[in-house]
Design a protein around this nucleic acid. Structure first.
Length: 908
DNA sequence: GCAAGGTC
């Protein structure tokens, strides 16, 4: 070791890394600690030799980014410039006030140093922070030699290797971050100022905050996060329940009960299901065709990273991701858990996992499990699996200090520490072992299966009680065995929409689409709540607010997918390109800012779309003179449905069609669609003398000459209250022009809305007669349930056959569904029965007769189409209509008496 | 009053 010692300034990204580096390199010998200007960032000093050069090492830290990017002063005030100017307004980096102390420490120390060694995290952001540090330090000492230490973990060998093999900092990585920062700032600021200033004065936006502080922010991460929430919400709204049928079979023996499910799953075609069911109950003997027994393993989760910690804390404790990170940060600061912001979910082979388990042996709850883990005789130990992520900077989250709970800890601190410990113990444990049995049976060619599972060894489930592995025991079966099922039922079900997104779902979406980083995802989620874009319920499920939905709807109507994750994905690709040198920072900035500016200008041209979307949800404010919406807000009458809001005349800017809709939307969806042939409409000051409740203001209409019959006048003063026959007729003749219900929302009305308005106007939606309303349509009296469920157009037809279920005469009708339009079917007149059969299936012999050999007591029909709602004795002998339509034989399905059919049953 | 990314 020779020569004069040089002074080396070492800078880490955070205080904890500075401490670790100092401890490792000094081996704790001769290590001195002193305060810097900033109270969090200590300065460590010791001597060390780098490749034979004696060095006086000074190790300190920053706290993440030292600098921020900002517009120059004259562009900072919101009204100082056109938001479009923000795409080229000059920006600069500066050290914010709360980082000035750190800057001063760096300056003071750098002055006396010859070398600067950068120990920032080895990722793009770390490289960018490195250059911020370089800028501050070289400003006071131009002679500094700049070196970069590359390390992938805070362990001895890595750190010693890093200091002995110093490299150059990577300016491409730093450039990529510079580009990202500038794009984020320019897009975020321009859109935020634009949409906030546009909407705030135009509408009365109720929110918990002071109206003056209301900011409608836009950001390339927060908006796609909102997009996930809104998209799921629309999916739920657009869901149309569909009824399906399935056959279920159970078998009870001395050993227990087995529930067999139909291997077809379920069918949406009732007729098909009932035909198969009929066949099964006529020949119900079940034959066991397959018995499969196998051992199943349930593996413990991989080691814990940030996203998993947030997801699991949300699922197990309903803690918000933001709160989880706050508590985790505190546990980390106090030394109880490792660094909580990590992508890594695999342990380095050099980590002493046993030592971590050993520390936990004394815990009253999981200590004995830790002891069992360490006892080789139990065979419980297993090296943890590799989750496939490694940020090369931090290990998975694991306990670093034993605790049975500290007095200053809250319940959440205890729960989170316990989760980290139990998760760690679980991931070094053997999987749970179960024995699974799958039995398949055949009933008249239909296959059914049942499964049972027993847990043989719990292993990791003993300590990881957040997870369960439910199972049930089923009786023993052998191949070839035959039995008569205890029950064989035809059950109906209804398709359900997906649930609202939970916080864990949202994190999964963000992770999958690359929205945010592990350290920032919770911030974006919190921002949705802070900005009143979404709310979260007690089950951690997110619903968009009117404000959130309106903003997404507005941009979507413009045709811009700014609320989708695509923009972020493009930015990520660009950053990657800058990082590996295939594109320059200047090139990426120029291209993407040019594109985004064009998008911004176009969005501003189409701002009426945003205003229209907002107008669906919010009342207009008097504060602004109003422009674009003036034609779309005249009050026609008080809404008779919700009796709370007004109905206003609106025009769809896209297709030009008019409607009168309730301002209470979406709570109230009352709407009157106006004829497609209307070219102009304006609310007059005259009120209708007939329609109640009044006042109902008359509307001055102008129709397009070519779209109405010659005997109608192009000018017409009409009433939407239901008294105006001309308007009703033209509505009938021309049709209405609601937008396509692409997302099941808004005036993109489900047919119900049209139905509602037509009914009110006195036009029957079924037969188009004006003499009665849809509710009283003679064609609906007998079969309204069918019509509601299946959209079948029920016009009375000839009655020629009797129902095979109850003997009531059937009516021949014509289907009006998209799949079966025009196809004829017979439908039982008895509402409780609801039997129907396609006419063409009778002709081809499907409607044949079968004798039923299953004992009446062993079968039942559950709720299939309401038939099983009466749980009386079931028909032992069924009549199926013959090709001639005559019943062969029958028995009442209500009371079981063979002397009469259900339509004349005395018990009804 | 605006973004997202570091971290205390």
């Amino acid at each position: 070791m020779g020569g004069r010692a040089i002074n080396v300034l070492n800078v880490a990204e955070k205080p904890s890394v500075a401490k670790s580096v100092a401890n490792i390199l000094s081996r704790s010998h001769g290590l001195r600690v002193r305060d810097g200007r900033s109270r969090y960032n200590k300065i460590f000093e010791f001597n060390y030799a780098i490749r034979g050069q004696l060095c006086h090492m000074i190790v300190t830290s920053v706290t993440g980014h030292l600098m921020e990017l900002e517009f120059e002063e004259r562009y900072r005030k919101w009204h100082s410039c056109d938001p479009a100017d923000l795409y080229h307004a000059p920006v600069h980096k500066f050290v914010p006030e709360d980082k000035k102390d750190i800057k001063r420490t760096l300056e003071e120390e750098a002055r006396s140093c010859q070398w600067l060694v950068l120990w920032l995290d080895c990722d793009r952001e770390g490289e960018n922070i490195a250059f911020e540090v370089v800028e501050v330090c070289t400003a006071v000492n131009r002679h500094l030699s700049i070196k970069r230490a590359r390390f992938s973990a805070l362990i001895d060998r890595e750190i010693h290797d890093a200091i002995q093999n110093l490299v150059e900092p990577n300016n491409l990585f730093a450039d990529a971050v510079d580009a990202r920062q500038e794009i984020d700032l320019r897009i975020g600021a321009s859109f935020t100022r634009f949409q906030t200033m546009l909407m705030k004065d135009a509408f009365i936006i109720e929110s918990a905050s002071d109206d003056r502080n209301l900011v409608l922010s836009y950001g390339p991460c927060q908006f796609p996060t909102l997009g996930f929430v809104v998209e799921r919400f629309w999916e739920i709204q657009a869901h149309e329940p569909e009824e399906f049928w399935s056959i279920n079979c159970s078998h009870k023996s001395d050993e227990g009960i087995a529930n067999f499910s139909w291997m077809r799953g379920h069918l949406f075609d009732y007729t098909c299901a009932v035909v198969i069911y009929e066949m099964c109950i006529q020949e119900p003997t079940a034959t066991v065709t397959k018995v499969r027994q196998q051992e199943k393993l349930k593996y413990p989760p991989p080691p814990l990273n940030t996203i998993e910690l947030e997801k699991r804390a949300s699922r197990y404790f309903r803690m918000s991701s933001e709160h989880t990170m706050k508590v985790a940060e505190e546990l980390y600061q106090a030394g109880f858990i490792s660094y909580p912001r990590t992508e890594t979910d695999c342990f380095s082979s050099r980590t002493d996992l046993h030592a971590i388990v050993q520390e936990q042996q004394g815990h009253p709850e999981w200590g004995s499990y830790a002891q069992r883990l360490l006892d080789p005789g139990t065979g419980l130990w297993r090296n943890p699996s590799n989750g496939g992520h490694d940020d090369k900077a931090h290990p998975p989250i694991h306990p670093t200090k034993f605790s049975t709970g500290e007095s200053r800890w809250s319940q959440d601190h205890r729960k989170l520490y316990e989760l980290v410990v139990r998760h760690f113990l679980a991931c070094v444990s053997q999987p749970a072992v179960g024995a699974e049995t799958i039995v398949e049976i055949d009933i008249f060619g239909e296959l059914f299966s049942a499964s049972g599972r027993v847990i043989l060894v719990k292993n990791y489930l003993d300590v990881y009680h957040y997870e369960s592995w439910g199972g049930s025991v089923i009786p023993t079966y052998t191949v070839g065995q035959q039995f008569i099922p205890t029950s064989l039922t035809l059950d109906s079900g209804v398709t359900r929409p997906p649930p609202l997104l939970s916080e864990a779902d949202l994190l999964t979406c963000m992770d999958k689409e690359g929205i945010g980083t592990d350290a920032t995802m919770h911030d974006h989620i919190k921002k949705l709540l802070d900005r009143f874009y979404a709310t979260k319920d007690a089950n951690t499920r997110f619903t968009p607010t009117n404000l959130g939905e309106a903003l997404v709807l507005g941009y979507d109507d413009m045709g811009y997918k700014l609320w989708k994750p695509y923009l972020r994905a493009v930015m990520e690709r660009d950053m990657k390109a800058v990082s590996d040198g295939t594109k320059s920072k200047v090139e990426v900035l120029a291209t993407s800012l040019q594109q985004m500016k064009a998008c911004f200008l176009d969005a501003r041209l189409n701002k009426v779309k945003l205003l229209e979307a907002m107008a669906i949800f919010f009342e207009r404010s008097n504060r602004s003179g109003g422009d674009e919406l003036h034609a779309a807000g005249e009050i026609v009458r008080r809404c008779g449905l919700c009796q709370e809001s007004d109905m206003v005349l609106k025009q769809n800017r896209q297709d030009g069609n008019f409607m009168v809709g309730c301002l209470g939307y979406p709570q109230c969806r009352n709407v009157v669609w106006l004829p497609r042939s209307v070219s102009e409409a304006a609310v007059t000051t005259t009120t209708c003398n007939f329609c109640t409740p009044g006042p109902v203001y008359l509307i001055q209409f102008k129709f397009r000459q070519l779209e109405i019959p010659p005997n109608y006048n192009v000018n017409h003063i009409g009433c939407i209250g239901g008294c105006d026959n001309i308007l009703i007729q033209l509505t009938e003749i021309c049709g209405t022009g609601p937008r396509i219900p692409a997302r099941g929302r808004g005036p993109a009305a489900p047919p119900r809305n049209t139905h509602q308005s037509n009914t009110r106007q006195g036009v029957c939606m079924y037969c188009q007669e004006t003499s009665h309303s849809s509710n009283d349509c003679p064609s609906q009296v007998m079969g309204s349930r069918n019509s509601q469920r299946h959209g079948i157009n029920l016009h009375s037809g000839e009655s020629s056959i009797s129902c095979c279920i109850c003997g009531t005469p059937c009516i021949l009708r014509t289907a009006n569904t998209s799949n079966n339009r025009g196809r004829k079917f017979y439908s039982c007149q008895l509402q409780e029965c609801n039997f129907f059969v396609w006419e063409d299936s009778l002709n081809n012999g499907t409607g044949r007769t079968r004798s039923n050999s299953i004992p009446a007591s062993s079968t039942s029909r559950s709720s299939g189409r309401g038939r099983g709602s009466r749980n009386g004795p079931q028909a032992a002998t069924r009549t199926f209509v013959s090709a001639t339509g005559d019943p062969i034989s029958g028995r009442c399905f209500v009371c079981g008496d063979p002397s009469h059919f259900a339509n004349v049953c005395p018990s009804r």
